[in-house]
Design a binder for these strands. Structure first.
Lengths: 226, 226
DNA sequence: TTCCAACGGTTTGTATACAATATAATGCAT
DNA sequence: ATGCATTATATTGTATACAAACCGTTGGAA
């Protein structure tokens, strides 16, 4: 832990754990032992506990009384609800952004889109998802509502792993690229209603791919021959 | 603090502080001294600090390093953003609810609406706002998406004070009642698009009333003769 | 009189100790 | 061998102590 920083340790620890979750170093459902985390991060239990409270309020971590904390996990049902909510939120961000984009903004968006096309041509889903995230964050920023932005960012952290998994579904990569092509067209035309609708569809498609993935994963676990 | 409860103290303290804020016993911008709160709630500093972290992550409280916590406050600009975001969220809840309402649900909603009419006839804004809150929470529940519900509830707590103030604006009480009459009609017709639009308008009107209120309040403060 | 530095008191941030709860291991009875 | 009760260990929840930072007051210098 960086002692030079002016941020309280609790805040820094929360950020670090967030980072570890994002990097898949801490996975959904994983136990978060206070002892072990304290050793790992080199802090005492007090700021670590405060950090876990922060992350719990954000939904990244669940704390069960007397049993400790785990990285949050979701049922298929939860996944559906999260994507439905995210569709509403990101759809609105897309609508507001399409209404508020400057020419400079659009150039930047075109450039981000071009990076997506490059990653797609190179058949590189990791790079694609990285630029995908930047594109979505750009839309969110250009929506110009920091409150919406904060809500979306919070929910994004919770569903991030899901998003990564869906891109590896057969055909999903190509489909996602196609959705983004339609999206950028709506933004070029500053057609806010179309942008909203297409963004919502984009999220729904992600959700469908994931629900299929989890259903099959469930089946694989259940079969005795597996 | 109730020792019989199975919840950790931190959780209980967070709930109690939330309650105090809702009851206007702790007001926007107010300093939250750890010492004083510990005495007031009869707990030690550790669960109190954890509680403040929870509330800070929710946006109800702001914590400045080495300076302590305050009940969150908003600029006029923030107020606008919050209502815009809430319009998106509650609009979507209204849409989903209109799609998903059973006949029994609609009866309950009618009954809640009738309470609003009664409070309006009695010229009782406090009762009106209390039933108003129940009506909105019912819509949110009937939207059937717990993730959306959690986001909306969180944001509602942050903007609650604003909502209370707007109803006291001249003409706003009558206007709000009229908006609710149109809303219930959209629900009766299960017209989801109309429900969404009307709900968004309802939130926009609240926002306008508040921006006017704060602008005038700002002026009052500034005038030397005041 | 005003401004700045030093000092003391207060409050926040973190570490550590103690208490309570959960879990694992061991021993005994069937 | 298995199941249950008891004991030991590990972990979480809370209280308390210590350190660091902030703020207000006072005194001295300009």
């Amino acid at each position: 832990m960086n002692k030079i920083s002016d941020k309280p340790l609790a805040t820094q620890v929360a950020e670090e754990i967030r980072r570890l979750i994002r990097a898949n170093k801490l996975v959904s459902g994983q136990r978060l032992s206070e002892q072990r985390l304290c050793e790992r991060l080199g802090v005492s239990r007090t700021p670590l506990r405060e950090a876990l409270r922060i992350l719990s309020a954000e939904g990244l971590v669940t704390i069960s009384p007397n049993k400790g904390a785990r990285v949050a996990e979701s049922s298929i049902e939860d996944t559906f609800y999260m994507f439905e909510a995210m569709g509403v939120l990101e759809g609105s961000c897309a609508r507001l952004a399409a209404e508020r984009l400057t020419d400079t903004d659009l150039e930047k968006m075109e450039s981000l889109h071009e990076q997506l096309e490059t990653a797609h041509r190179n058949a590189d889903p990791e790079s694609y998802m990285s630029w995908n995230r930047e594109f979505h964050e750009f839309v969110q920023e250009k929506a110009g509502n920091p409150v919406l932005g904060r809500i979306v960012s919070g929910l994004r952290d919770v569903i991030l792993l899901h998003r990564y998994r869906q891109i590896y579904r057969p055909g999903r990569f190509d489909e996602s690229m196609e959705e983004h092509r339609r999206l950028i067209e709506a933004f070029r035309a500053r057609d806010s209603e179309r942008a909203e609708r297409l963004m919502q569809t984009h999220l729904q498609k992600q959700c469908q791919a994931l629900v299929t993935y989890y259903a099959e994963k469930g089946k694989e676990v259940v079969y005795p021959g597996d």
